[in-house]
Design a protein around this nucleic acid. Structure first.
Length: 270
DNA sequence: ATGATCTCCTGAGCGC
DNA sequence: TGCGCTCAGGAGATCA
């Protein structure tokens, strides 16, 4: 379940390992991913990669002809550098042969991911409706306060909404709310003014802390060379139903909000 | 316009 | 051992 820190870990890996390389051949199985690609991915052939950017959970691979290859890993997408002779894992949808003998391969069992190639200089609109990336300086406590004031959604749903703050998923929303001592059920506009700065800091801090650990791995997240993340050992509430709250010792609870699990401490998150 | 609900998909885990 | 059920969730579509 890659969220912002996991996607940023992969972005950094691609920046080191992919930028400057030429894609010599493309083996694309026009997979039934969630959204069609504007251009056939076979047009990646012959292109050199110039940069890899990120907004929220989307990767933007910039190519030497001013085209953009957009990648979203969904739930189970994996982008892996691998020896060209290595056997193929199941549900492989794309294989790129690089100019140094390696492959870059995309596999995605649940097919929630997206691979979208845009024509040169075409506008990429997939994140046009998104709010600021949570690690971008444009995400400010003042901006967060203004958005909170106009929303009647519970904080859990508010923070999962990518049009408000972009990049958070279930794990880091639960963890940021725990760090702030705010209930996931509290209505956004009722967030105490004095807590908003702390919420903003908790969001940024938890993402940074996870990034330092290479992200969080449950079942399937690995980075571009197959390494899992280590942040799982630092989680306070997520996936810890029944365990003691690290702050007050009460049992961590699991509830369902918008059909998603929420983990929190009902004693010290108010 | 906003928020809630449903949908997509497959593998893992569980109970019997 | 194997079957069937439930669950996981990012984001877009749809509904109230």
């Amino acid at each position: 379940m890659p969220e912002l820190p996991e996607v940023e870990t992969i972005r950094r890996g691609l920046e080191r390992e992919l930028v400057g390389h030429r894609i010599e051949a493309v083996d694309w199985r026009p997979a039934r991913l969630r959204k069609a690609s504007p251009e056939p991915l076979t047009r990646l052939a012959g292109r050199r990669v110039e940069a890899v950017d990120r907004h929220a959970k989307f990767l933007f691979v910039r190519l030497d002809n001013d085209a953009t290859w957009l990648v979203h890993l969904g739930m189970t997408g994996k982008l892996l550098f691998i020896d060209a002779a290595a056997p193929e894992r199941p549900h492989t949808h794309l294989r790129l042969s690089l100019d140094d003998g390696r492959d870059l391969r995309y596999s995605d069992p649940r097919r929630f991911g997206m691979l979208r190639l845009y024509a040169p200089r075409a506008a990429v609109d997939d994140v046009a409706h998104y709010g600021p990336d949570a690690l971008d300086p444009a995400f400010s406590a003042e901006g967060l306060a203004a958005l909170l004031a106009s929303s009647r959604a519970p904080l859990k749903a508010f923070l999962l909404d990518q049009t408000k703050v972009a990049g958070l998923g279930n794990i880091y929303v639960c963890e940021a709310l725990w760090r702030t001592g705010l209930s996931p059920r509290r209505i956004a506009r009722n967030t105490p003014r004095a807590k908003i700065g702390a919420l903003h800091r908790a969001i940024v801090d938890v993402l940074h802390d996870s990034l330092v650990q290479g992200g969080t791995s449950f079942n399937d997240y690995v980075d571009h060379i197959g390494q899992p993340g280590n942040f799982i050992a630092r989680l306070s509430v997520f996936q810890r139903e029944g365990a003691p709250c690290p702050r007050c010792g009460a049992d961590v609870r699991r509830i369902v909000q918008s059909n998603r699990s929420t983990f929190f401490c009902a004693t010290c998150q108010r």
